[in-house]
Design a protein around this nucleic acid. Structure first.
Length: 623
RNA sequence: GGGGACGUAGUUCAGCUGGUUAGAAUGCUGCCCUGUCACGGCAGAGGUCGCGGGUUCGAGCCCCGUCGUCCCCGCCA
């Protein structure tokens, strides 16, 4: 019943042939996307990664092939040998790239059959994700998934080519290594040879790439898998891929230039122009203007409108005059009804001492001049939604509210971030009304991208966020913890305050945000051992503790470490943005579920007693 | 660890206030059809209502538990 392939070779793909190819004899191979049986005439849509081509089997002209086509079913693998033929004028299908031609088949081979699939790769409406992930091989046959993997490949290739041209070497670092000083939990791999000893899978190649700088490699990059044993989110998988790079003797701007270069190349590879340089903003400014450290520039930021109110007015409103009073503005949303405002209240975090003034009309009746002024300050259009966020005078927290020189206090940050998070929530909720996200969608889904470059400047809004705080205060332990990894360099001019005023010390640490997503972060590293020691001391870490955790690295640091720095960008997130996907799973071939399970291979699983014994492991829980 | 949503035919879903034999679309099977392209026509098969327990004369529907998928908080430089 099935046919052997013999020496047949495919001569064209299913997305390739056009009117100009008419008359050629071709051999197509692919999957049966759909079969339309008209009795003595059968149409098969043949599908492969490249597209769909219609093949026609006429009982009069090719009785054997026609008989085979009667047996063919969706997802059968077939070879069609025949002539490319122009379709009649009324039979042209303008919806298909190959719609002007069809294959008049002389010979049809059934290369393989298929069970009835649980869902059809030909369908636009898709099955639930559980089914898709279990039958991922069928899911990946869908044009959308094939497209996402194509984008991923093109982006990775463009990045490699760009970095190669800039003199970077791709160097592989070990997967079986020791725990590096990142904040997440490690995936551990037991050693058979060394009982009770474990390797860790890398959370990132951080220390290896720094050591490559000590080695004089000068410019390193790697498109590398990283592993973190933390709970998942739509934009977080336990294994993910980073574009990781490091270079010797850079200034921060050197790194930015490289990243802007390879991102422009990556966007160009998928038909989008991305202007550079990207704007820069300090962490403090980001918090002041957006209330978040990864601002989405597609929407307006916060406006400080405290000056619109008098001290008495603020008192009447029970607003703390010492804290920011900011307006959240979302364009084109209009005024909200009482019910809408009530529904939105849970989106606002009140616990941090921030309060919401969301009924501007009522406020306007009491203080018409102030509201007019704040509308002006916020540059509000009549149909904009305006909401005020301020410090709540009733929940004054005096004790922990230390104000450091030139930097935002914890309480100011609390109010600003409550406003910033509310802004993000409202933006998500009213996306249909303000339309700012649809701009990105339209660029991502534009068919013109395949033939020409289209302008991405409104759809993709990258932003460098710089000068993050070096330390963050842990209210539970009362100690200062590194906000990042402990090898991040402080600003040289802030170093004299390491002990006296740790909160005011800025790190030479930077994030790249795009459209409200954190795309990557990096820093200029510490290259001097004496500075490294000061940092450990500021963190309250003893020499012995530091040595126990990072001994090999501290040792390496003593042998002529050059100034160096780098960055790591999430490839998955980048592709997610470029594919217009709402989850990383859409751009990873074989992703895991929210419980970190691979539904296709069914992992993780228990293992045999023999394996455990060999690894000297005795589980405390039994299945 | 916590909160929320969902779970009914292969798939996507409907199923009222708890009431007779659980429906639709699509897919699947068979027959018919020479210009379809989401082909069409006729006929048919297809259900552990996630699982377990409870309430009730009676449960897809109510209650408790449990499992799974998704989203969020915590967590994740």
């Amino acid at each position: 019943m099935l046919d052997f392939l013999g020496t047949r070779q495919r001569t064209a793909t299913c997305g390739q042939l056009r009117a100009a190819d008419a008359g050629q004899t071709v051999t197509l191979m692919g999957w049966v996307n759909r079969r339309r049986d008209h009795g003595s005439l059968i149409f098969l849509d043949l599908r492969d990664r490249y597209g769909i081509t219609q093949v026609v089997l006429d009982k009069d002209l090719a009785p054997e092939g026609h008989a085979k086509a009667e047996q063919a079913r969706p997802e059968y693998v077939v070879a069609a040998i025949g002539k490319v033929r122009l379709r009649g004028a009324d039979a042209v299908n303008p919806k298909m790239p190959t719609g002007e031609i069809e294959i008049a088949v002389d010979e049809l081979l059934l290369l393989n059959d298929s069970k009835v699939p649980p869902f059809s790769p030909a369908e636009e409406a898709i099955a639930n994700e559980e089914v898709r992930l279990k039958y991922r091989y069928l899911d990946l046959r869908r044009a959308e998934m094939a497209h996402n993997l194509e984008v991923r490949h093109k982006v990775a290739l463009a990045v490699r080519q760009y970095l190669d041209a800039q003199g970077f070497y791709e160097v592989e670092t070990p997967f079986l290594t020791r725990s590096t000083p990142e904040g997440a939990r490690d995936y551990l791999v037991p050693s058979r040879v060394h009982p009770a000893h474990f390797y860790a899978l890398p959370q990132s190649p951080q220390l290896f790439k720094q050591i490559l700088m000590i080695s004089g490699l000068d410019k390193y990059f790697q498109i590398v898998r990283c592993f973190r044993d933390e709970d998942l989110r739509a934009d977080r998988q336990p294994e993910f891929t980073q574009i990781d790079l490091e270079m010797t003797f850079p200034q921060q701007e050197t790194i930015f230039g490289i990243v802007e270069g390879f991102l422009a190349a990556a966007f160009a590879a998928v038909g989008i122009t991305l202007p550079s340089p990207f704007p820069r903003i300090t962490y403090d400014e980001a918090m002041r203007r957006y209330g978040i450290d990864k601002p989405d520039l597609r929407l307006p930021g916060l406006t400080d409108i405290r000056s619109a109110f008098t001290a008495e007015q603020l008192q009447t409103l029970a607003v703390d005059p010492a804290l920011p009073v900011v307006a959240v503005r979302v364009p084109k949303v209009g005024d909200l009804s009482r019910k809408e405002r009530d529904d939105n209240r849970p989106l606002f975090e009140t616990k941090k001492g921030a309060k919401l003034l969301d009924d501007l009309r009522r406020l306007e009746r009491s203080f018409p001049e102030s509201v007019a002024k704040l509308r002006e300050l916020a540059q509000a259009q009549p149909d904009d939604l305006l909401i005020i966020v301020a410090g709540d005078a009733a929940t004054h927290i005096a004790a922990s509210d230390t104000k450091f020189e030139g930097r935002l206090s914890e309480r100011e940050i609390a109010v600003l971030s409550a406003a910033g998070n509310f802004r993000v929530e409202l933006a998500k909720k009213y996306a249909d009304r303000h339309g700012a996200f649809a701009v990105t969608d339209s660029v991502v889904r534009s068919p013109e991208r395949s033939s020409s470059q289209i302008d991405g400047s409104a759809a993709f809004r990258p932003l460098w966020v710089t000068d993050f705080p070096m330390f963050e205060h842990d209210p539970e332990t009362g100690r200062w913890a590194p906000a990042h990894h402990p090898f991040t360099s402080p600003h040289e001019e802030d170093m004299d305050r390491l002990i006296s005023d740790p909160a005011s010390v800025r790190a030479r640490y930077y994030d790249l945000a795009m459209n409200g997503l954190e795309l990557g972060s990096g820093s200029i590293r510490i290259h001097r051992q004496d500075v490294q020691q000061q940092i450990f001391r500021a963190l309250g870490m003893s020499d012995d503790e530091a040595k126990a955790r990072f001994g090999f690295f501290l040792e390496a640091l003593q042998y002529g470490t050059p100034p160096h720095g780098g960055i790591a960008l999430g490839l998955d997130r980048l592709v997610m943005i470029l594919a217009g996907a709402s989850s990383l799973r859409e751009v990873i071939a074989f992703p895991k579920t929210a419980k970190a399970i691979d539904l296709m291979v069914d992992a993780p699983t228990p293992v045999s007693d023999g394996q455990l014994k060999e690894l000297h492991i005795r589980p405390s829980v039994r299945n």
